[in-house]
Amino acid sequence: MITLRKSADRGHADHGWLESFHSFSFADYRDEQHMGWGNLRVINEDRIAPGTGFGTHGHRDMEIISYVLEGALGHKDSIGDGASILPGEVQRMSAGRGIQHSEFNHAADETTHFLQIWLLPEARGIEPGYEQKPFSAEQKRGALKLVASPDARDGAVKLNADAAMYVGLFDGAEQAELAFDTRRLAYVHVARGAVEVNGKALVAGDAAKLDGEPRLTLSNGVDAEVIVFDLARAAVRSAAVAAQVAK
């Protein structure tokens, strides 16, 4: 079964310095039909205005991935990491037993456009951690490149969650397939452009939830950048998670 989640149906918030679209319930956007998908809890498409950003704040017991589409994202945290995240790079922050961090757009004249992704971890109270790796356009062109997984295979970022994340670029005749264990779930998010997901047309901001589908086929892309998740069937831990996403 494939269920589409259209871009226009997402939650939306405009704070002036930040414009955000929420694929799942987050902060003031509450939708009981969209609380997450398996152990994927948050996909926020954020645009941060020049010279602004998220001040220092805390998280715990969450795997947080930042994926920059345009501009740069400055990161600083309480375990001593500081970096600038650029397009094509994947940043994973394990909040574990608790971490403080800030994310900032230091550019004077360029908006930072990125995806903020939260996954429920396999275990609570782990040591907080950070990892960041670049993945070239060539690695993703006409293919689904593994960029994050529990075993960090093929050079992927290591996830402390039962999930895998792939990124692909598709245009024209380029296409890719990925097989799934039908006991698990999958989620496809179109970051930009347009593409067909198992024959269904999606455009930027759209997503597809896959349940019981043995195979994913991406085809007929038009300057498309696509993110695919292979996910555990995990229930949302409502109390702990709700407290964080309400901030």
Rank of each mutant, 00 (worst) to 15 (best):
D9V: 07
D9W: 04
S20H: 13
F21W: 09
F21H: 04
S23G: 06
F24Y: 11
F26K: 07
D31L: 04
M35R: 02
G36K: 09
R41K: 12
G51D: 10
H57I: 05
G58F: 11
R60S: 04
I64N: 10
K76E: 02
G82W: 10
G82H: 12
L86F: 08
R92T: 01
Q100W: 11
A107H: 03
A108G: 13
A108M: 15
E110A: 15
E110L: 13
Q116N: 03
W118M: 11
L120D: 13
P128E: 05
Y130W: 10
Q132K: 05
S136W: 00
S149Q: 06
P150S: 01
R153I: 14
R153Y: 13
V157F: 07
L159A: 00
V167Y: 07
F180N: 06
T182A: 13
V190W: 01
A191M: 02
R192D: 08
A194N: 01
V197G: 13
V197C: 14
N198Y: 09
L210A: 07
E213P: 05
E213S: 13
L218D: 07
S219K: 14
G221Q: 02
I227N: 06
A232D: 10
A232K: 05
A234I: 05
R237P: 00
V241H: 04
Q244E: 04
